[in-house]
Amino acid sequence: MTTARAELRKLLTLPSLRRTALLTWAANLLLTFAYAAAESRGEPLGDDPALAPLGYTQAGFLVLGVLAAVSEYQEGDQIRTTLLAMPRRLPLQAVKALALAALTLPVAAATAATSSLPAGGAAWLPAATAYLTLTTLLGAAVAGVVRRAVPAVVLLLFVYVIAGPVLRARFGASAAYLPDTAAVDPSRGAAATITWTLAALTLAALTFGRRDA
């Protein structure tokens, strides 16, 4: 319990996380407005306006996860202090994931609500919130393995923004196996998102358990 409180406090006091969350939410608001404006001009942008903005703002959640995980490895190498206080690595990793999920959940809910409620997609709200939270955890897991912010962001954004859409457009069957399909089609991609996130978390926990700090 103390560990959970400590981890939460560490996350809450990171200015970069606050800024990322705020920027993500603001960007989502702008995009929702753009979709609504296009709709009212009679030239809708093609996708479901309740979910489409989230396809872009999920990048903010990936970054949120990356920054949360990488903060331990940045200058000063906080991870050594953390491990001194909490030497059992696997429970620590689990608590870290739970703390990040608890922190992300309200941000994800607020962001998802911003775009799905005005577009009349309230039914998507729980699914979108869960998706954004899982995406954050996946980002944190990948960054926990990579341990550096910029390479982790490049890798994640490449998969989510470039490779994912290209694969879905050319090989329709691949959509069910990609981690980001749920952003555009929750009913189809949910299983893949959950599987990818759990796999990434397991990999991160295993490497964290075995690797030098």
């Binding site: 995009l31 407005f33 753009a34 979709y35 404006a37 296009a38 001009r41 030239e43 942008l45 093609g46 872009y56 990048a59 903010g60 970054v63 910029v150 962001v153 490049v154 954004l157 490449f158 923004v161 470039i162 859409p165 290209v166 457009a169």
Partner: peptide
Amino acid sequence: PLTLLIINSSVVSVSYLLTKV
């Protein structure tokens, strides 16, 4: 900058959406 620019290089870029507005 990486996040902004890479999102904007996606299949349907944000700038392209803005041209509709």
